[in-house]
Amino acid sequence: MWNLPNILTVIRLIAAPMVAVLFLYFTRPYADWAALILFVGAALTDWVDGYLARAWKQESKMGAMLDPIADKAMVVIALVVLASVFGLDALFVLPAALIVFREVFVSGLREFLGDVAGTLQVTKLAKWKTTVQMVAIALLFAVGIFEHYLVMGTAGMDRDIVLSVLDGTVEDPSHLRLIYQGMYAAWYSGLALLWIAAALTIITGVDYFRKALPHLRD
């Protein structure tokens, strides 16, 4: 059971709650940096462990059980952490709530189905859904990093001067305009991908429920 693919999956499972713990023991932006690096590193193991399991013919029941649990734990915990960072922003909260609802619903459905759940084929769209979720969350973690350096760079500056710097009408030796553009690029691209992920989440959730429906009828 303890082959390399399964070890990577367990590491990803352990990394999921650590993303939240980082914000308890580190100040920002160190927590943001650490969370981003940990999350991206753990997300990459999702591809690596699956590839190695297939290439080395080391696919196992333990890996098949832990892999989706690790993915869901990473996504749900990261969304909770980001919700605490961004607050109740509707543009973020709505897609995040849809994603969490789907993951809880499908997890409960799989638990009810038992061994039958393993016979329901995972679609390529479901794998794309996970990938889009991971990229969106990574971009949203980067927003906090840009935001911190923007605030630090403009501390003590007059508001009109800050606006002039961001408009490009005043010299910008600290590259504040670039940081500002990076922050908004990460925010809006992360939000766009999160909404796409939410749509894919609902589509794949409905598809999974449709496949499970024959096993739910008396």
Rank of each mutant, 00 (worst) to 15 (best):
A96L: 13
P17S: 04
G156H: 05
W187G: 08
V104F: 10
A136H: 04
V135G: 01
I137S: 01
S84M: 07
F146L: 11
P29N: 09
M183Y: 07
R102L: 03
R210M: 06
T169W: 12
V40Q: 00
H215M: 05
V151Y: 15
I37F: 10
K57M: 10
F112A: 13
F92I: 11
L191F: 11
A20E: 00
I161T: 14
L91K: 10
K127R: 05
F23N: 03
D160W: 15
F39D: 00
W47T: 02
I202E: 02
V151G: 13
L22A: 12
F101V: 11
H175P: 08
A138Y: 00
K57W: 03
V151W: 08
D49R: 04
M1R: 07
V75C: 01
A198M: 10
V132F: 08
F92T: 09
R110P: 10
G144P: 02
A136M: 04
R217I: 15
V106S: 05
L52N: 07
Y184L: 13
Y25N: 13
G63V: 03
E171N: 13
I69W: 03
E147T: 14
V206N: 02
L44C: 15
S60T: 07
E59Y: 05
L91D: 09
A64P: 04
L109E: 12
D32P: 04
I77A: 07
H215L: 09
L98R: 07
L13V: 01
G114P: 07
A97L: 09
Y51P: 02
L216Y: 14
F105W: 13
P68H: 10
R54Y: 07
K57L: 14
G63L: 01
F23R: 04
V162A: 12
D218G: 15
A16C: 05
G41D: 02
E171M: 13
M74V: 01
M65G: 06
L66P: 03
A16L: 01
T9H: 12
L94W: 06
Y184Q: 08
P214K: 13
A43D: 01
L166Y: 12
Y180D: 11
L98G: 07
V21E: 06
G153Q: 11
G168K: 14
A155Y: 15
I14P: 14
Y30A: 10
V76F: 06
S164I: 10
Y25I: 13
T131Q: 01
M74S: 05
V122S: 14
V80G: 14
L166M: 12
M134R: 00
L216K: 13
M134L: 10
I99G: 02
F209S: 11
V40L: 09
L120Q: 06
R110A: 13
L13D: 00
A117N: 11
S107R: 05
Y188G: 03
A192H: 06
A126C: 06
R177E: 12
L13E: 00
I37A: 06
A42D: 01
K61H: 12
